[in-house]
Every structure is written in C-alpha cells, then in structure tokens.
Design a protein around this nucleic acid. Sequence first.
RNA 1: GGUCCUGUAGAGCAGUUUGGAGUGCUCGCCACCCUGUCAAGGUGGAGGUCGCGGGUUCAAGUCCCGUCAGGACCGCCA
Length: 440
Amino acid sequence: MSFRCGVAMRILSSQVSKHVGEEVRVAGWLHRVRALKKVTFAVLRDREGLIQVIAAEPGLMQRLAELPEETVIEVVGTATANPQAPGGVEITSPSVTELSDPAVPPPFDIYRPVVSASLPTVLDNAAVALRHPRLRAPFEISAASVAGFRRAMERLDFTDVHTPKVVSSATESGANVFALDWFGRKAYLAQSPQFYKQTLVGVFERVYEVGPVFRAEPHDTARHLAQYTSLDAELGFVTDHRDVMAVVREAVADMVSTVAERAAGAVELLGVELPDVPAEIPSIHFADAQELLARETDEDPRGEPDLAPAHERWLCDWAMREYGSQFLFVSGYPMAKRPFYTHPDPERPQYSNSFDLLFRGLELVTGGQRLHRHSDYLAALAARGESPEPYAGYLAAFAHGMPPHGGFALGLERFVARLTGADNIRWTTLFPRDLHRLAP
RNA sequence: GGUCCUGUAGAGCAGUUUGGAGUGCUCGCCACCCUGUCAAGGUGGAGGUCGCGGGUUCAAGUCCCGUCAGGACCGCCA
C-alpha cells in the first residue's frame, strides 16, 4: 500500500478489497449507521461507492451512533474479507476522525436505494439531494455525453471555441432574451452562439462549442429550461444540409458509445437502455412526414409550418416500426418559420435545407445549411423588414467571403433526459433555471 | 400566455364527495431492547396554527371567495 509520512494514503471504497489484511485509510460521508447491541455498522460513502465499517468497541459504537448521517469522516482500520459483509469486504478495528461538523440531517433519506422525495423537494435541497446515487447518476451520463461529443468533434478536426454569452443584439429576431445592464448600455444573454460559430467557420472551417444558452421564453413544461447547455457545431464547405446530418450522426454515436464506456455504473444503476445509432439514421422530408400523418393518423397537419409534439412522437414510433431506429431525421422544414440565415432548398424554395433529429419522441437537434452569400443575407433581412445595421459584425464575415456551410445544436439536458427516461428535464439539470426557479 | 390538477408532521401520502375534538398510514427522528446488520428488526415516544387571508356556520382540513406556492398538458422551442 502507499504511505506518506508513515501513514496510509487514502484509498477509495472500491479499492478496499485489494488490500485485505492491510491497514487502510478511507474517507467520505457517513451514509448510514446500524446499531446493534454488540456491534455497530457504519456505511461510508465516497465518490466510488460504499464501504462498511464495523465497530465493536463500546466507546466507538456510542460515538458512531451519535454522529448524524452525512457527517464527513475518515476511517483507518484493517481491510477484512468477510462473506457476510456487503461486497465481501469491510473495515475492522477502525479509528474514526470527524472531518466536518456534525451534519444537518437531509430532509429525506439519502441512503435508501430509491428516492422518495418529489422533484421540487429534490431541487430545493439540491446540495445534499444530488449525493443520492440515483440522483447523481444522470450527471455522470451527462459528463460522458459531453466527452463523447468532444471526442467526435476532435476526431473530425473541429476546433473548440468559446464565444461571448453577453451580446449586444438578439440572435434571432422576435426571440425572448434576457436584458441586462452592461456599463450603462443595454445587453442580452446569448440565446445561442449562432452568429459567432458561423463567423468562426470563416476562420477555422470547423468549430464546436459546449456552453450555456439563455431563453427568456415563458413556456413552462417538463422539457424547457431558461438556461440549458447547448452542444453546437458548424462546418464549412458543405454541399448541403446532408453533410451536416452526417456529422450529427457521428456526434450522437460517439456520445452513446462514450456513455457506455465512461458511465457504465450509472447506466446500470438507472437501468438505461442505450440506443443503437444506425450507420445511416433514417430521414424523412417534412412534406412526406405530413402526408404520412395525414394518411395514417386521424389528424391532417398538412399546411402547418411545424410538427406538433404529438406528431413527433408518432413519427418516432413509425421510425421504430419501419427502420428499427430510435432516431429519425426530419428535413426540409418550411422556410416560413425558420430564421433568416436558413438556406432554402434550391429545388423547392418554400422548403429549407434544414433538419431536426428526433430521439424517442422528442426534438433533440436542430440544424441545417445556412446562407453564405452576403447578398443573400441583405435580401433575407430586407424581406423580413429588418435593418442590417444591428447585424453589422456578423454580416462582415459574409462580406469578406464565406464558404457554403451549416451546423447544428443539440440540447444536452434533453439528450440525457431521453436517454435515462426522465419524465422531467429538471432531473437531468444540476441546478435548473426556469420561469420560477432562480435558486439554489 | 391558455387549460387542468395539487398544497395535511422532516419526507411521501390517505382523510375533503356527505362539515362534528388534528382521525390515520409508510418512512425518518428520540429513548430503550436486540445472534453480522446490509432499505435491519422489536417496543415505546415526540413532532401539525391541515399554504395564507377572509366569509358561511353552533361547528371548517372539509363548503364559498381571494391570494400565494408547486405540478401536468398545450402553444413555442433544443
């Protein structure tokens, strides 16, 4: 074992079984105490898991029994194999040192395998609630998802960029943005890195960003947040939006495989079924999707500029039946509802070269080809009755020459929510910010 | 922004329809008991202005009005 200044170095709970017969030092939170007449069991929790500590000395038994759960302690004792111990190993003859003040007990039981508390209670008590293995697990999956996204982006030679989150004008006209005071000038929280990532295609050709975006929209649902984490990418020299869709496929495939590799424990704990990402994700044109819905359901959405959530759910079921895929691209959304930088379909100009990726019934990614000619931007803004003036910094990129390009954005919390089957996106957001919640 | 639902002990819930003393359940907490527990078990106990304000009534957790808080769905979005 390792020593420093003559004392055992701290090891993690998962390592104790490798040190049977040796003195070990572990530290963590007092997860649960069970006191019997002649013996007291203390379960200690660290970032790897749980380890049982057994005390038979009356003074120590009394001390352990009086310590509130969640108090941080350090234990030095003998790693002992015992078939009766959870995991077959425990720490005997311990000495216990408190590293924190006695903890205030959590409002609900952290040590139980299932969480009894409701979502508002969990969110109000996030500091301690997130310690529960089942509440923590989605964020291990989230971290692995981001690692997978980065892995795909780096493999495909994208450059990692960081763009301003305080901006001088709204990214997309008509959007609800948070206004704030910037040294006496009006500023806004960035609703998306859209303008900057496009601009940076002119510098790096391929860029990606993982960062927060802010939406001051008044919707109040289980799948919306006022701040969420956006996984953005943008690439130049595309033929059309299908080149972007191919990159989305690579990103999602690496996200799923990295979750399998790096968050296996969380996946198992939550019983997550990881989806297969087909080599080619099935794709349907918006117009064909509407025809399909009109033909095979009671509703006729033809003429609507967008798909309703119920339609997205139906299409996902259809993709599962038809292609065995939990993912489905819907491409060619009407230009009418798309932002001004959207590139039209050259064959059918009322439709756009844009797409959504649906996953398990929910819109997960939006992307597409963008306009790249300066003259097209001026025309698009003029058609919407907007002045180019507020967009001067953005339009400069196109004035100075930009290649055909496109990109996408993926909502991280939504991805993890769909993956884990969470019924509310707040279960997959550490400290949600929404219409009502600004703390903790 | 619209529609609907819910506020009862630290947590999760019954009880409200048909008004009658805070009536109760599961867990936690406290005390004691206990053959190695592992979501331990046993016995006993504490803990409630029934979200808040007003009204009706002899009497309100229960009925009415208002208000605040939380949740679900829709619209919109990722």
